[in-house]
Write a protein that binds this DNA or RNA. Structure first.
Lengths: 216, 216
DNA sequence: TTATACTAAAATCTCGAAACTATTCGAAAT
DNA sequence: ATTTCGAATAGTTTCGAGATTTTAGTATAA
């Protein structure tokens, strides 16, 4: 059973969901022990992650978790707006009824979790659930765009975006404002209005464009 | 002297400029000899290239040069249009006189080579020269956009795009039509017209959208 | 005190062989 | 003639040790 891919996936998930400190050093020799494999195998995984932008690599200096920077988050937000708007518009044109059905399903799922969270005592346990549903919603939005390249590119940007989020934004991203946003994006997409869809996607993400969000 | 990066660069260049057959197998053991290093080192470089989309990787099956597909070229063309248009417009807004100067310089250089080629007996020797100048022109176009992420993303798409080109398009991409296109893109960019710039970039790349180009 | 040079320790990078997996090819059975 | 099986070959992945480079610490000189 080849394990390099498992390591890759594991590290990917942790990097995106905040499992490492920003700027932390990633030593192959250390991670080696956790995965019970050789350092070379970890190194390969880290190399791949570095090409995805989730890990910084410097020759002879090793691997690091990228530092957080407001400027980077703004750039990634712009890219998300660009790619999601384009993907959503293309989905509207190509998707048909099947895509609309998938959209309503994805939103229903997300919406359900968001309602649960609103009244919950311990929100922490819902974070992963919500996180997955949110990703699913945004992925579905562009899923019928007809371009694997665009979807792949978006997935990478989305991962880097999430990695750049502060702890507070990762944990309380499901604020009531967002709940309304998702509903409006769905409505615009189903109605087939390209202009409106672009607008709602922009509105949804615009909060990350100021660079003024606070960390926990 | 760390050599992994050299191997990476060398393979990258060859993959993009058609140094390998489409679909060819890339065996670490074979390439090892050429670079006079171990297979593991080649493997690392190939892994990185696979994450960039320039090499296909399958577990337990090794590495391959991606096959050419008209659909893929069309997708990449759409991405180029999207990214270059956005980047150019942002450059128009942020670039100022310095960017305009760089643009005219890049175009002058490209234009000079294109004129040389038109009257040359043996065009082959100019290909690399032209190729570099063309890349430089398109890179300069988006260079003042203010987003490293966008530039990086564009560089990746551009590389994959070039890799997907047929031999004929790589060798005779400097057709007279293109010479005119580049001039018009420059003119639109310098004039500051965002709409016109978007249009000219689209026109320039549109020929790849039909999927009907022939191979040599 | 600040700067420089040297040394020891720690980390990274490369290697070649061993372990593992896929493919090929030919023999036996249908 | 075709299929199935298994051995032999070819190819891929993992490993841990050794070579190289960076980093940290200490001593010496300005």
């Amino acid at each position: 059973m080849p394990q390099e891919f498992d390591i890759f996936r594991n590290l990917h998930e942790r990097l995106v969901s905040g499992g490492f400190e920003h700027g932390a050093k990633l030593r192959a020799e250390v991670l080696r022990e956790e995965f019970d494999c050789s350092a070379s195998t970890v190194r390969e995984a880290l190399f791949r992650l570095s090409t995805l932008g989730l890990v910084d690599f410097q020759e002879q200096k090793g691997f690091r978790v990228p530092n957080r920077s407001p400027a980077k988050l703004i750039e990634l937000t712009h890219m998300r707006i660009l790619l999601e708007s384009e993907g959503a518009v293309m989905s509207i044109r190509n998707g048909g009824i099947r895509w609309e059905a998938k959209m309503t399903a994805a939103h229903h799922q997300l919406s359900h979790i968001e309602k649960r969270i609103s009244g919950a005592d311990n929100r922490t346990e819902y974070i992963e659930l919500w996180s997955d549903a949110e990703r699913e919603f945004h992925q579905t939005l562009i899923s019928a765009c007809g371009s694997e390249t665009l979807k792949e590119m978006h997935a990478r940007i989305y991962a880097m975006f999430r990695q750049q989020l502060m702890v507070s934004d990762r944990r309380f991203g499901f604020i009531s404002e967002n709940i309304e946003h998702h509903a409006q994006i769905l409505k615009a997409a189903i109605s087939g209005s390209e202009q409106m869809t672009r607008q709602k996607i922009h509105d949804h993400l615009a909060r990350h464009l100021t660079g003024m969000t606070l960390d926990a």
